[in-house]
């Protein structure tokens, strides 16, 4: 049984201007709204790293948000462990594109968010353990604005992992980071996954990210998005894009599929 199953998923937004203009008659077109996702069918196994690629604005984030329960599908359903997703839940932790840390809380308090029901002593131990895990020891009592971009991502990761979720959902987790920090955080996400083996869904627009991290790569088409490619990558880690010929061929294929030529 697969961990996450997406069945005939559709999403459209209502265009308010069109609805108000068309008043009573001819409501059929307006009620359909703007189609974002069109008939998406996917299955993810437990512990897989799934990287989702697609042209910008195609609905990648919308797909993630529906898996997380932040948005409701217009049609179809998302099943997690065979149960339909009805709303956000601590079993599926979302890592936000721009920091989801609460800026009025220190790193410590942010990590505490998911551990607040533990006994004080156990809570303290668990918070420290997860802060140490992402190498933010000694920075516990700083506020997010006092941290670098990379440290903020690590803090949010620690907060998410601390609740021991089944799934980590990351919306462009490396966007806005400089090149070296991007590489470093990517490496940490991979190492973290080796350690805890959570099902991890990552939306990215970086093809190399997908090739380095993914057990499975999904390519969505432009809006309304359909699944253009679903490919399992049966390579071990660490992966070296410079040496692995198959990965490099796949990279060319992905560049072509996303409408850009790799060699300019």
């Amino acid at each position: 049984m697969s961990h996450i199953k997406i069945k005939n998923l559709q999403k459209s937004y209502i265009d308010r201007r069109r609805v108000s203009r068309s008043k009573t008659k001819d409501n059929s077109k307006a009620s359909q709204g703007i189609a974002i996702l069109n008939d998406i069918n996917l299955e993810f196994e437990k512990g897989e790293v799934v990287c989702i690629l697609g042209p910008s604005g195609c609905g990648k984030s919308t797909l993630l948000r529906m898996i997380a329960g932040f948005e409701k599908p217009s049609a179809g359903e998302v099943l997690v462990n065979n149960k339909p997703v009805t709303g956000p839940h601590a079993d599926s932790i979302f890592v936000f594109q721009h920091s989801g840390l609460l800026p009025w809380m220190t790193v410590w308090e942010n990590v505490e968010l998911g551990l607040r029901h533990l006994e004080p002593v156990a809570r303290k131990v668990a918070i420290q353990e997860h802060i140490d895990l992402v190498e933010l020891t000694r920075f516990e009592h700083l506020y997010p604005y006092q941290l670098s971009g990379g440290m903020q991502r690590r803090a949010e990761l620690a907060r998410g992992i601390a609740v021991n979720p089944d799934t980590l959902i990351m919306d462009e987790p490396f966007s806005g980071l400089d090149f070296l920090t991007h590489m470093k955080i990517r490496e940490e996400v991979v190492n973290m996954h080796e350690l805890i083996k959570k099902t991890t869904l990552i939306v990215t627009h970086d093809i190399d990210d997908a090739l380095i991290m993914g057990d499975k790569i999904i390519v969505l088409s432009g809006r309304p998005a359909t699944v253009k490619l679903e490919k399992n990558l049966n390579f071990g880690r660490p992966r070296n894009l410079a040496e692995n010929l198959e990965l490099r061929e796949l990279r060319d294929e992905l560049f072509f599929m996303l409408g850009v030529s790799y060699a300019v």
């Binding site: 956000p88 839940h89 601590a90 979302f94 936000f96 609460l102 009025w104």
Partner: peptide
């Protein structure tokens, strides 16, 4: 809205949303 989504994600109660999100956010 992100902050309310974080709250929902970590199962905060209505009271916790008030004390941990709304009040500090508007301070």
């Amino acid at each position: 809205p992100t902050f309310f989504q974080v709250a929902a994600n970590f199962n905060l109660s209505r009271y916790e949303i008030l004390t941990k999100i709304v009040i500090p956010a508007i301070t």
